[in-house]
């Protein structure tokens, strides 16, 4: 995994969304659309990483469980909040993916030069998913490293 494709597209605009009250951010340039939360079709034996599929205007889009990826507790209901649909490039092929956020707040402008690294002791989230911390007013916003956060699990399918 390299970060090159991200570096080439330095995000200046960040979309802020919340999970368990924490503010996370994603580069706006990758975001496709934001939908109301909706039930997804569960994929049997898929494991917790990408448990389901939704229909986004005729396209079948995998739903990624970002809470599980970050080690957060499961959502109380999958029907609340918002669903963020974004573009993710794996091996030069663009994939549309979706994940549930508790809420979507705002788009901020951000100079990525001001990005600070996240001190490993400062969070319990997997370090490889975190790109850095930016300040939005008084609040700290965690910018996610999409490349690693949404990378398909490396272990091949193991029979349940």
């Amino acid at each position: 995994m390299t970060n090159n494709s991200m570096e080439a597209n330095r995000p200046d605009l960040l979309l802020i969304f919340r999970l368990e009250g924490e503010a996370f951010a994603l580069s706006v340039s990758w975001v496709h659309e934001i939908l109301d939360a909706q039930p997804w079709a569960p994929v049997p034996n898929s494991g917790p990483f990408a448990p389901g599929l939704i229909n986004v205007r005729g396209a079948v889009v995998p739903v990624i469980d970002i809470r599980h990826r970050l080690g957060l507790p499961p959502a109380r209901s999958e029907r609340t909040g918002r669903m963020i649909v974004f573009e993710h490039v794996i091996d030069c092929v663009s994939h549309k993916l979706a994940f549930n956020a508790d809420s979507v707040e705002q788009v901020i402008e951000c100079d990525l030069a001001s990005l600070e690294p996240v001190p490993p002791l400062g969070t319990s989230w997997p370090q490889e998913c975190l790109r850095g911390v930016v300040r939005n007013g008084d609040e700290l916003v965690i910018l996610l490293e999409t490349e690693t956060t949404f990378a398909p699990p490396t272990e091949p399918f193991v029979a349940a």
């Binding site: 079709a41 994929v43 049997p44 034996n45 898929s46 599929l53 229909n55 079948v60 994939h95 399918f157």
Partner: peptide, 23 residues
């Protein structure tokens, strides 16, 4: 997608008349 391709027994997905996804 690459996230689900290797699951045995699934050949693809489709969209039903009511807009839901079926495997």
């Amino acid at each position: 997608s690459i996230y689900h391709r290797d699951i045995p027994g699934l050949g693809g997905a489709t969209i039903l008349g009511d807009g839901r996804v079926a495997l």
